[in-house]
Every structure is written in structure tokens, then in C-alpha cells.
Amino acid sequence: MIVIGLTGWRDHDSLYAPGTAAKDKLKVYARHFAIVEMDSAFYAVQPPDRMARYAEETPEGFGFVVKAYQGMTGHLRGKPYYDNDNDMYGAFRDSLTPLREAGKLTAALFQYPPWFDCNKENVRLLRETKKRMEGFPCALEFRHQSWFAPEMKEKTIAFMRDEGWIHSVCDEPQAGSGSIPTVPEATCPDLTLVRMHGRNVGGWNQSGNANWREVRYLYDYNESELNEWGATLARLAEGSRCVGVIFNNNSGGHAAGNAKQMMRLLGQAVYELPVVREPEQLDLFNF
């Protein structure tokens, strides 16, 4: 099974009729797609009651990929919110529990930063993290090329299989050590995650600029690129019962359109907003 979705549900204007309230967008989003990535959890661990409400607002079979809190992946700058790691991981686990109990937790996504390279200390940290998250499905995404260097690629994949990590396969620009190649390998029989970041080489390494969010994921996949990925997704589906595909290329608003294009290429049904016709003006002399 291959399911397609997007990062977040609030910022994809083409999915919603004008005037759709923010509180209603998740319900409408779930008519279009069966999976979503919740990136708000990266900035703050979400309260369990909010997660329970999200579960209630979505239909049976809907799934959430919840991005791990930044303090757990080495991204945090400034004063920590939690006093210690036990409290931090405990809060995150509590946050995920309503989704897991509702059968709607696809995975917790641990995306590590470009400076998280392949060394013994970081391997130890990954083992410790996986133990702390026991009982929760966890996906792993790297941003440093060293994990997939020729001499390390097979070892990294074997490590992920041994530790029970779900592989987050990436399509992203090849722009130096802070980006990784596409490695289409399934490491978990239940799930493989695929994240489509676009291929904007020039904008990828500009995180220090004020408008980096506006350019980093600025990319519109063409039909040939999506067709190539369609074949890759079919191969990944041979190694995992489910392949979840998240389009993250929304700096220019292309993610929703590309996701639906991919669904059509895969022969999946695509929901479109009903066409609202303007009322015809009454002709006073022809009635």
C-alpha cells in the first residue's frame, strides 16, 4: 500500500474553499489525503488532549507522522524547556499516546541535523533514543552524507534494521555534506517513509538567510521525475506493507499539486473541491 500526503495541513490553499476556518482545515485535509506530517511538534511537544482531538477529527485509516521535538534531535538553541531528558522524552511519549491508542500514529520522525555525522557517539545516541521510544514506531532521517558514504551505506542500513528504525528515504538536492543521496531501502516490514523535499540546489544551504523557508523547498516536480519515483515506490512497497510519501516542497505552494499528480500516476482516486458556480443574474425581460 502506498499513501500520499503533505507536511502540515494549514498552508495548502488549493485544498480549501475560501473562508475555511483554521479549526476545520484538518477535517477537510483528510478528504484529500490519508496521511500528514505534523511538524508543529518539532517546535513544541503537543498536549495530549490536542492530539486526541486530532485523532477524533480524522477518519478511520488516517495516519500522522509526528516530527520529533527539536530538543531530542540536537536542533535546540537557547534554554531547554525540560529539566532533563527523561522529562522531555516522557512528555513526547505522552503526546503520542492518544494517536497510538486510536491507531493513527504512523510514526514519530527523528530527523537529525546536517552536523549529526556518522560516529560512535551518535550511533550510541541513536540506540539510546530507540530504547527511550520503545513501543512507538520511529522513523530515522539523516542530513549528513557520511551515513551513506560508500563504505558506510550498507552498515547504516543494517544498523537501522537491527535497531528497528523505519527508514525515511529522501529526495532532496545534492548540495554538499549537509544533504544525503536517495537510498531506496526498506528497513522495516511495516513501513517505509519517503519525504519529497524538492531539488532546489541553490536554496538548500541558505538556512542563515532571513527568507530561507521561502526558497529551500521551492520546487515543482515534473511528470518524468514523479514517474521515476512511482517505480521506486512500487519497489519499496515490496519490502514494507505500507509506504508513506510526504511532499514537503511547499515554499512555492507546489506540494499539494505534486502529491495529487503522484496519486493519479499511481491510479489512486483524487478528491477535488466541488466547483462553486456564481449565481446567474436574473434577466428581468426573459422570464
Rank of each mutant, 00 (worst) to 15 (best):
M1G: 00
V3C: 13
I4P: 04
G5S: 08
G5R: 03
T7L: 14
G8F: 04
H12I: 04
D13W: 10
S14K: 04
L15H: 09
L15F: 08
Y16P: 04
A21T: 08
K23R: 14
D24Q: 06
K25C: 11
H32M: 07
S40C: 01
S40G: 07
F42E: 07
F42V: 00
F42H: 06
Y43I: 05
Q46T: 03
A52H: 08
Y54M: 11
A55D: 04
A55R: 15
E60T: 15
G61W: 10
F62T: 13
F64K: 11
V66Y: 10
Y69L: 02
Q70L: 06
Y82A: 09
D87K: 08
D87P: 01
M88C: 13
S95C: 13
L96S: 02
T97C: 02
T97W: 15
E101P: 01
A102G: 01
T106H: 14
T106Q: 12
T106V: 08
A108I: 08
L109E: 05
L109I: 08
Q111Y: 06
F116G: 04
C118K: 13
E121A: 12
N122W: 06
R124Q: 06
L125N: 09
L125S: 03
K130E: 04
G135I: 02
G135L: 10
E141A: 12
F142W: 12
H144P: 10
H144K: 08
Q145V: 15
S146L: 09
W147E: 08
K153W: 00
E154V: 07
I157Q: 05
F159T: 10
R161W: 06
W165Q: 09
I166H: 11
S168Q: 09
P173T: 07
Q174D: 12
A175V: 02
G178Q: 11
I180N: 03
P181N: 04
T182S: 04
T182I: 00
V183C: 08
A186E: 03
P189E: 07
P189R: 05
V194R: 00
G198D: 02
R199H: 01
G203M: 12
W204N: 01
N205K: 13
G208F: 12
A210I: 14
N211L: 07
R213N: 13
E214C: 08
V215Q: 07
Y217P: 13
Y219A: 00
A231T: 14
A234S: 12
L236F: 05
S240I: 00
C242K: 15
G244N: 08
N250Q: 05
A256F: 10
A256S: 15
A256D: 14
A256W: 11
N258I: 12
A259I: 13
K260C: 13
M262A: 14
R264Q: 01
Y271F: 15
V276R: 06
V276T: 07
R277V: 01
R277W: 05
P279W: 04
L284V: 07
F287Y: 11
